[in-house]
Design a protein around this nucleic acid. Structure first.
Length: 635
DNA sequence: AAAAAAC
């Protein structure tokens, strides 16, 4: 199962296996049984999918429904005539690419020869008296003659995107609004704009306000308070914010708001190239370090782009690239991507970054670490993305080590540094326990913990291990011990990963064993317990991992198994526990004392200064000055 | 040393 090296028959087999276990298909009774639907498309309404059924051949339909987004999921009489659009006609050579038109803002309908100048986006008309479209056909706005045409509302789409008010799954009830005022916020840089305390029309566009309201967010979280005016005033941002503090909204709200205000960029004349089709020119690009995180961000983007001219898309590896290409060539204004797949699409000539005005690096410290940095540099510096002065760049992460801040400077101009939450530490919402457990005792201690909590705890337990192999072994062990468990790691297929995450999220399988792939950014409500079965070697990873619980003001528990193998992080761990007002076991202090303070590793010197690392190094950094980049390693 | 991310 975990070694998926089947070749020829793989695809068919995958399709054949599909209808069996996927509860999405079963529960919603959609006509898609037997087909793989990526997570971000699974909530499409029945009518939407049915309406597409008669249009094209079976094979085509799999692909298009897989990656198709809302925009083309609904019949559009004006664009498609009698609704006889076929995938073949779609790719016919006589179709003119939208990007090689004389007019910069071309019509995006797909019928060959159809042309309406100054029109961008979907149909905006068809209003009914109450503003709702009863047939559930719209939700796609447009831009015409400098005016943002907001599409009619659709109760179908709204239920898909926003859930119903009593839908516990979707609610953000845990947000402790009173506590927001106590959270320290530090904004440094030149002329830092004043924070806003409400979602209001200036500076936000009215339409984004309406989508924020539909999502039931009532007041800005601390990071949003500042990111909104910072982005609206054209500034760059490096934001260091506690996990679960609304970082995604922190960049989506102001970016979409600006896009709604200003409309699409004029498209450049198409360069001759191998690929003659419609190229995607996203106005905003969001990069994320894992596929699941990209998918999660995209889900949010769909909510806040609802009824607007902005079409969000997502691309990531491990999923069929052709479907993704078809999706983005239908229009792609706000693209969320993992780096590898994006580079692939750029090489294929399917994506140009020449119109990208907003660049977001989520989990930025991860994106700029040794594994990712070359790819990021390539995307940002060696493709056709506008230079640092012609775009706005935003970086977000819960941790921002000083050396990464130095690196990040290459991508930013006169940025505001924002530090939200308990600086450099984890939230007090999380009760952190550390237990001394030898490797050979870990299994039985884990079982004890799980036995103790299954009684009345209906929350989810996330268990982190260091290796993919251990993730497999441990989840198998738990299952054999009678605990419903699943696992997620990079050697599982994308389908397995998504299914594992989904069954965990819904609570069907309340225990998940995970590698670092699940450590960052994933927003899974109701994770009440994070267990570090293996502690990471980097304290920042620990911070991100335990941040999967205690989200949005909820409380959570974290348990770490510590033994001699983990003494490398002992001092940083103690510092962290102190800052978060956690109990520190006496034996842990002993281990720290026994661990030589000069212990050979360079880690103690550069990174560990506790609170220092999440503060603006321009202001708090020790010896290195702004101008001394390149020779700053003399501590 | 391991994990993640493209085929």
């Amino acid at each position: 199962m975990s070694n998926g090296k089947l070749n020829g028959a793989r695809l068919e087999q995958q399709f054949a296996n599909l209808g069996i276990n996927d509860n999405h298909h079963q529960s919603s009774g959609k006509p898609t049984a037997g087909r793989y639907v990526p997570p971000h498309l699974r909530s499409q309404s029945v009518s939407a999918l049915q309406s597409r059924r008669p249009h094209s051949g079976w094979h085509q339909r799999i692909e298009s429904e897989t990656w198709d987004n809302r925009r083309t999921s609904f019949p559009r009489a004006d664009a498609w005539g009698g609704g006889s659009r076929s995938e073949m006609g779609y790719s016919s050579p006589q179709r003119r690419g939208w990007s090689d038109r004389a007019s910069s803002q071309g019509d995006r309908s797909y019928r060959p020869g159809r042309y309406q100048s100054n029109n961008y986006g979907g149909r905006g008309g068809n209003f009914s008296e109450d503003g709702f479209n009863r047939r559930g056909e719209d939700g796609i706005g447009s831009w015409r003659d400098g005016v943002h045409i907001i599409a009619t509302r659709s109760s179908f789409i709204e239920r898909d995107l926003f859930g119903s008010p009593d839908d516990l799954d979707r609610q953000h009830t845990g947000i402790n609004f009173e506590k927001y005022d106590d959270i320290p916020v530090e904004a440094t840089g030149n002329n830092v704009p004043e924070g806003v305390s409400n979602f209001t029309n200036p500076p936000l566009d009215k339409h984004i306000l309406s989508n924020i309201e539909l999502s039931r967010y009532s007041i800005p979280t601390p990071v949003q308070k500042y990111s909104i005016p910072i982005v609206s005033s054209g500034r760059d941002l490096m934001a260091c914010a506690q996990t679960g503090s609304g970082k995604t909204g922190g960049f989506l709200f102001p970016i979409l708001s600006e896009l709604f205000k200003h409309g699409p960029s004029p498209l450049p004349p198409e360069q001759p190239g191998l690929y003659r089709g419609r190229k995607a020119y996203p106005a905003g690009l969001i990069l994320a370090p894992t596929r699941e995180l990209a998918s999660q961000i995209f889900d949010e983007a769909r909510k806040f782009a609802y009824r607007s001219w902005v079409r969000p898309c997502v691309v990531y590896g491990g999923a069929d690239i052709h479907g993704q290409m078809r999706s983005i060539e239908r229009g792609c204004d706000l693209l969320t991507a993992t780096p590898g797949r994006l580079v692939d699409l750029i090489e294929r000539g399917r994506v140009s970054l020449s119109q990208t005005r907003y660049l977001v690096l989520d989990e930025a410290d991860r994106m700029l670490d040794m594994g990712f940095e070359p790819q990021i540099r390539r995307i940002v510096e060696q493709e056709d993305m506008p230079g640092v002065n012609e775009r706005q760049t935003l970086m977000f992460s819960a941790t921002f080590p000083r050396d990464i801040q130095v690196l990040a400077r290459d991508f930013l101009k006169d940025y505001v540094f924002l530090s939200v939450g308990r600086v450099g530490s984890t939230s007090e919402n999380i009760t952190q326990k550390v237990e001394y457990v030898e490797d050979e005792d870990k299994r039985s201690v884990l079982l004890d913990i799980l036995h103790a909590q299954t009684k009345n705890d209906r929350g989810l337990t996330l268990i982190f291990v260091e290796t993919k192999r251990m993730a497999d072994l441990l989840s198998e062990f738990l299952i054999n011990s009678g605990f419903p468990a699943t696992s997620i790691h990079g050697d599982r297929t994308q389908r397995e990963r998504e299914r594992a995450l989904d069954s965990f999220r819904t609570g069907r399988v309340p225990i998940m064993v995970a590698t670092a792939v699940a450590a960052r950014g994933l927003d899974i409500p109701n994770v009440t317990h994070v267990i570090n079965y293996d502690l990471p070697t980097d304290i920042d990873d620990y911070v991100h991992r335990i941040g999967r619980t205690g989200r949005a003001g909820n409380v959570g528990i974290s348990t770490a198994f510590f033994n001699r193998g983990n003494k490398g992080i002992v001092r940083e761990l103690i510092e962290l526990l102190k800052e978060a007002n956690q109990e520190i076991p006496a034996w842990l202090e002993t281990v720290a004392r026994e661990t030589s303070s000069y212990g050979g590793s360079s880690r103690g010197g550069n990174r560990s200064r506790g609170r220092g690392q999440n503060r603006d190094y321009r202001k708090f950094g020790s010896s290195s000055e702004r101008g001394s980049y390149g020779s700053n390693n003399t501590e």
